[in-house]
């Protein structure tokens, strides 16, 4: 350890105390005000009781949702028909740009690739793990380790994988695990992974798959265990086993869960921002919709184009979530 006592240390400690103090204060005020309102509103009796309850308990949520989501969403749609600083109406020009400009097109194509490949791979691997792991001893250890990346932020995951993909010229000692492995396997001249298009897109998708497979595994595993025993038994009596059992009994029984998992990962993938921002900043042909939206808005200060991209993102998410809702409602009615 160099420098045992650091000059900034005292400053750091008081900085931390004041920041956490602010948090504590905010929490105290929040619950203090809440308690006062509760006690005051609780005194209302008779005809006032119900309206008072509804206003006080539901009001804050509705106001926050209106101000934070509903109104801004409508305003973004409105802004998407305006120019860069929202001063002139330009009808659909931002959308024409999004579908014709080369870089925006690239973002759209990449996003499409992402939502087609990453969720399917994650779901299939998750399903494979869910089916296989239950037969093994130490299954909870395997499950925890596969599931662990879910708790890691995409930023943390990006650093982990950037280290795996680290490139050194072939003659020098390798520092990235991927280069080391492929060179040991006989590929003596591997490319600089992250700079090589279109390979880099797939390498970045690996991060998403790594992160989401555990989610798919846990949810699908629960669904498989929830299949009623008598159905399994009946199928066995009829002679189904092995692959036939998997494809004709297990998969159809968990079909809805499979779709929910797939669409959920698709939605996460569609909104993907952190990995691209951290790994490439959208360079080297890896741009995606959500990062482009950020760059247009906060780097190019073009609110119109940024808003149009956000609306396109919304249009992509809409059918996925809509389908999920329909599916969940139907399942609920059956139960």
């Amino acid at each position: 350890m160099s420098a045992p006592v650091h000059p900034f240390l005292a400053g750091t400690a008081s900085d931390a105390a004041s920041k956490l103090g602010q948090s504590g204060e905010a929490i105290l005020i929040f619950f203090g005000v809440g308690l006062i309102i509760f006690v005051a509103a609780g005194r209302a009796t008779g005809r006032l009781h119900r309206p008072m309850t509804i206003t006080v308990l539901l009001g804050p949520a509705l106001i926050l949702l209106a101000v934070g989501l509903v109104i801004p969403a409508i305003r973004t749609i409105y802004l998407s028909f305006y120019n860069d600083d929202s001063t002139a109406f330009i009808s659909g020009k931002n959308y024409t740009w999004a579908f014709t400009n080369h870089s925006a097109q690239q973002a759209l194509i990449n996003t499409l690739l992402w939502i087609l490949i990453a969720p399917i791979v994650a779901t299939v691997l998750g399903l494979l793990m869910a089916v296989l792991v239950d037969r093994l001893r130490w299954q909870s250890v395997y499950k925890s380790l596969i599931f662990m990346p879910m708790a890691i932020s995409f930023v943390g995951a990006s650093i982990i994988w950037k280290f795996v993909y680290d490139y050194r010229a072939p003659g020098r000692p390798q520092t990235g695990l991927l280069s080391e492995i492929v060179m040991k396997l006989g590929w003596h001249n591997p490319p600089d992974w992250i700079l090589t298009h279109p390979l880099n897109n797939f390498l970045l998708m690996v991060i998403m798959v790594w992160s989401q497979t555990g989610f798919a595994m846990v949810v699908l595993s629960a669904a498989i265990k929830a299949i009623p025993d008598d159905i399994i038994d009946a199928a066995k009596v009829d002679g189904a086993r092995g692959l036939a059992m998997a494809f004709r009994i297990t998969l159809p029984m968990i079909r809805n869960t499979l779709i929910v998992v797939l669409t959920t990962v698709m939605i996460i993938t569609l909104k993907l921002f952190d990995i691209i921002r951290t790994m490439t900043g959208g360079n080297f042909g890896t741009e995606v919709l959500a990062n482009d939206m950020y760059s247009q808005t906060f780097t190019n200060f073009d609110t119109g184009k940024g808003s149009a991209l956000a609306v396109i993102l919304f249009a992509g998410v809409l059918p996925l979530v809509g389908y999920n809702i329909v599916l969940l409602r139907r399942e609920r009615q059956i139960r």
Binding site: P72, T76, L79, L270, A310, F314, V317
Partner: peptide, 20 residues
Amino acid sequence: FIFALQVVPLQLALVPLLQL
């Protein structure tokens, strides 16, 4: 309606909320 609001991606509300 509140349940359905889950369709709204963060990005769609970001800029107007910042401006507010």
